[in-house]
């Protein structure tokens, strides 16, 4: 049978490695949200001396491509130092799985992003973030790329939902090309705020809608 997924992807989907939670993790992150589609959480235990990832677990509320990528990414990251692990790319994950259907790329990107976010979370908690970069429009835009537009099934930047971004004195103002009454307006707004408000030099995030 011609499944869009190869046998290795199906095998990881059927028997995903490293699933579940770690109690009291050293680093953790969640990407995506139930309101906008797939969601994936990742937990880390890191050796304080060597910075090697000793244990890693993930949870997925997603499709086959999301689950299989979560499985492979945890296998790839385990035993690596956090510096090595944060450089694992989507291409590497996809290659390790023998390739993923192109149309499903965005579902698997989340699983790669969540590893980087969990490592970032670890670094922030353990005082490893040395230089503080001033938030720019580019940084905001990059973070908004992680917010799904459920109307299109792709991220909100790629689907031209973001009309304007202003940053002024710790306040980020984002204008979305969507009516406020749209059924997904609130879900997208909450997701966008969550992605931006954690930036160190941002105090407030304002999301506005067009008519």
């Amino acid at each position: 049978m011609a499944s869009p997924y190869n046998d290795l992807v199906l095998e990881h989907f059927k028997n995903p490695r490293n699933t579940g939670r770690i109690e009291d993790p050293d680093g953790k992150a969640t990407e995506g949200s139930p309101a906008c589609g797939d969601m994936v959480s990742l937990y880390l235990k890191v050796d304080p001396e060597t910075r090697v990832i000793d244990d890693i677990k993930f949870e997925s509320y997603g499709c086959a491509s999301n689950i299989a990528t979560g499985s492979i990414i945890t296998e790839l990251a385990k035993g690596k130092t956090i510096d090595e692990a944060k450089n694992i790319t989507w291409q590497e994950a996809s290659e390790a799985l023998g390739g993923l259907p192109k149309i499903k790329a965005h579902c698997s990107v989340l699983a790669v992003e969540v590893l980087r976010s969990a490592i970032q979370n670890y670094e922030e908690k353990h005082g490893l973030v040395t230089e503080k970069v001033v938030t720019t429009e580019e940084i905001v835009r990059k973070r908004l790329k992680k917010v799904m537009n459920p109307i299109k099934g792709l991220d909100m930047v790629a689907t031209h939902l973001v009309k304007e971004i202003d940053i002024n004195d710790g306040v980020v103002r984002i204008v979305l090309d969507l009516p406020e009454t749209h059924q997904f307006a609130n879900a997208i707004k909450e997701d966008a705020v969550e992605k931006i408000e954690s930036l160190w030099d941002i105090d407030q995030v304002i999301v506005e809608f067009t008519d």
Partner: peptide, 10 residues
Amino acid sequence: SACFSRSLEA
């Protein structure tokens, strides 16, 4: 589910 459809729309 959007993931199942050809258009990726729910």
